[in-house]
């Protein structure tokens, strides 16, 4: 995502990234980011916590206004749990699912509802 943020900046549009993977965001050189120290998959806040979700996005947008140094990362204060033991088990083994080259729907009903001519699904040609 850092690569895309950089491309967007190159067109003159300021960008800010949310992040829960600080090492990756820094390595990719994201222009600006707010770091939320949560397990991956909740980058924009805790499920159903509207106040937190609003606050995370608002902090990110404030950074667009306030950051002056490229690569600025602001860490948010939220904690996922009372202790950080969840970090011990993250990526200690290969937990990725088998990868298929056919569409992987969240539920079977979505497959039957999908428009085979989908005009908002955009496939890109190789460079």
């Amino acid at each position: 995502m850092g690569l895309i943020g950089r491309e967007v900046e190159a067109r003159g549009i300021p960008s800010v990234s949310l992040s829960s993977a600080l090492s990756i965001t820094r390595s990719a050189g994201a222009p600006r980011a707010v770091f939320l120290d949560f397990p991956l998959g909740r980058t924009a806040g805790r499920a159903f916590d509207k106040a937190m979700q609003r606050d995370v996005v608002r902090h990110a947008l404030d950074l667009v206004r306030d950051a002056t140094v490229p690569g600025t990362v602001t860490e948010l204060d939220y904690r996922w749990a009372a202790d950080d033991t969840w970090k011990d088990g993250v990526m200690r083994s290969d937990s990725r699912q088998e990868r298929f080259d056919t569409p992987q729907y969240q539920c079977a009903a979505d497959a039957s509802l999908a428009d085979p001519e989908c005009p908002t699904c955009v496939w890109l040609a190789p460079a």
């Binding site: 088998e98 080259d101 569409p103 699904c121 955009v122």
Partner: peptide, 15 residues
């Protein structure tokens, strides 16, 4: 209504 992503280096996007 959209086609889901596949899981082998799918670099398409959805609008």
């Amino acid at each position: 209504g959209q086609i889901a992503f596949h899981h082998r280096d799918d670099y398409s996007y959805r609008e």
